[in-house]
Design a protein around this nucleic acid. Structure first.
Lengths: 138, 138
DNA sequence: TTAAAACTTGCAACAATAGTGCAAAAATAT
DNA sequence: ATATTTTTGCACTATTGTTGCAAGTTTTAA
């Protein structure tokens, strides 16, 4: 009985091969993952549809969160802080490297509050910074 | 000779029906537009491919910019401030309404600076706030 | 421990979205 | 006005995401 299984159980999910493997992938990766990355890293052991559904489920259960991008893809990353079902707290800044295209969750950098114009009622804020990462800057 | 044509010429682009019309659409719209919105609003007068290419070209030339979303779509909006080719300055916050799904460019709300961890070299920052807009809040 | 119930998966089909090569058409330059 | 350059539209292909349903797996509870 390992920690990953516990996460699944706590979320009320059945413990299956695909879920275990995909969750493991997220823990092994330091950055964020796109659907395509997951298919690649599982050697297509699971159906494309299963991957889609697993990701959806994980988002719903607050295990992972989505990261907005401008390139018509969705990136997913582990929710490291206390996310609950239906209520995410992924209020950290994301960094995407222009050179290696890796995405980093800057867990220690929180998204700053901004004052919105009259009438706008905020629920969630996301921030994505692009540039060069440590590796690529050298 | 109108202002829109000048924008195209200044960017070194031929002045064509599709470009004029699509640029006009952006000026007439207060929010951001997705590819689909543009096709709808032009009554499919232009080929889908033409719309794709026009948007790409406009982004390259710094006429419009892309807005990141978490729903696997790209939104585009006019660069109101001094954007140049290859170097965007769309440093304002975007607001997406959860109810009506409209996107607003909050031109007066600039993206705040954040301190990044050692090693990260920022080039651009984007911020998207979701919630309820003026209309939908009522 | 096993059988029933509940849930998850994979397949097939479908739908929507995006990209490419190339000939025809339009815009620009001479 | 015509040659050159650029842009467009079509046909085709690729990628990405969704749905229904039967078969398979996991969980529950006797």
């Amino acid at each position: 009985m390992n920690a990953h299984n516990d996460i699944l159980k706590k979320s009320g999910l059945s413990v299956t091969e695909s879920r275990k493997k995909i969750l493991e992938l997220f823990f092994d990766s330091d950055g964020a993952l796109a659907h395509a990355d997951i298919e690649k890293n599982t050697d297509a052991a699971f159906d494309r549809v299963t991957v889609y559904r697993t990701l959806q489920t994980f988002v719903e259960k607050g295990i992972i969160h989505q990261i907005p991008t401008t390139d018509n893809s969705i990136l997913y990353a582990l929710c490291k802080h206390n996310c609950q079902q239906g209520h995410h707290h992924d209020n950290h800044v994301h960094f995407i490297c222009n050179k290696c295209d890796k995405t980093f969750c800057l867990d220690d950098v929180t998204v700053p509050e901004v004052k919105l114009p009259q009438g706008f009622s905020p629920a969630q804020a996301a921030m994505v910074v692009t540039g060069l990462c440590e590796e690529c800057k050298l």
